[in-house]
Amino acid sequence: MEKKRQKTPQEQRYQQQVKEKMPRSKTLPQCLRAFVVGGLICCIGQAVRAFGENTLALDPDGVAALTAIVMVFLGATLTGLGVYDKIGAWAGAGSVVPITGFANSIVSPAMEFKREGLILGTAAKMFTIAGPVLVYGIGASVVVGLITCLLAG
């Protein structure tokens, strides 16, 4: 592999200057907003869990599945209605990290690429961000499962 080119002194100096003078986002208010919105989304999830446990009397797996499905539905629908990106602009990671954000990452490219067709547009682009999440998530889970086999065997 080609070795990385050394930075010239001029490049180094400029990059340093840019780094120093660059306007920065205000991390503290961003974190507060992420905390509040992320917390609220989780509380909605908690309400769904409580409903599944108490009212529907589901087993723990059922409760988990119900919560995931309802939260994904909410995230997907709010994205379709054009609301989720506004929440995201305010809340940052508060709306990216919950599973509703995962749904948003699926619906937003799917909507956007509808004009390129329903197969190679919507269906293919749906997984531009969710695809890697599934690859790494499922990949890691299989590795963990295999290690469990080894340790148990």
Partner: peptide, 17 residues
């Protein structure tokens, strides 16, 4: 936006620059 960055409906923040 769609060519260089993210889909419009994707939630997220822009950086100040």
């Amino acid at each position: 936006e769609r060519q260089y960055r993210f889909p419009l409906e994707m939630g997220g923040q822009t950086t100040p620059t």
